[in-house]
Amino acid sequence: MKVSDDLDRRFRERAASEGSLDVAYDLVDSPIGALLVAVTERGLCRIGFDAEHEHDLDPLARLFGAKVLRAPKAVDEPRRELNEYFEGTRTAFDVPVDVRFDAFRLRVMDELARVPYGEVTTYGALAARAGNPRAARAVGTFMNRNPIPIVLPCHRVVGANGSLTGYGGGLERKERLLQLEGASLTLLG
C-alpha cells in the first residue's frame, strides 16, 4: 500500500524539525542543472552536481552519519540564497557552512571565499595567499574536491594562462557561472 505524498512530506518535515537527522538534503533547480543541496545542524555541507543524486548519499553518510534524509524544508535558506545568486541579485552567500578540513586546506578555502564575485584568480596565486606558493597543484585538487561549489567559489580559480583548466561540475558549468557573474578572463593576462 503506497504512502501518500502528504504523509511522506509530513514525516520528512517532522524528522528534520525534531533535529534527529545527521544530514537533510533536497534537489534545487538551477540554470546549470539540478543541484543536490545538503545541510547538517551546523550549516551547508554539500552542493552536488551529479545528476544521479543517489551517488552523493553514501559519501554524506560516511562523513556525517547514516541519518541522511531528503527533507526539502530544511534547505529552504540555502535554496533561497542560491535562487537569488542565479537571478543575479546576490553576490555573496550568508548561509553558515559545515566543512571539515585540515589546517592548510582550511587556509586555502578561506582565501577562496575572499575572491570577489565577478573576479578570477589563479591556482598559484591562491596557494601563495594561503602561505605556500608552490602548492598550486594541491590547490587544484582542493578545488576539484570542493564540497560546496558555487558558495565556495572554486569556479573563480583558473590556470595561470587564463584557461578555465577544469571544474568538478564540468567546464561548461564553470563557464556559465563566470558568465553569470560577468567575469572577464582577459583581465588576467
Binding site: M1, V3, L21, E54, L57, A61, A66, V68, L69, R70
Partner: peptide
C-alpha cells in the same frame, strides 16, 4: 548501514 533515505524509501510502503 545504508543512508536512512534509502532504507526509508525501500520499506515505507
Amino acid at each position: 548501514i545504508p543512508p536512512f533515505e534509502r532504507f526509508y524509501v525501500e520499506h515505507r510502503d
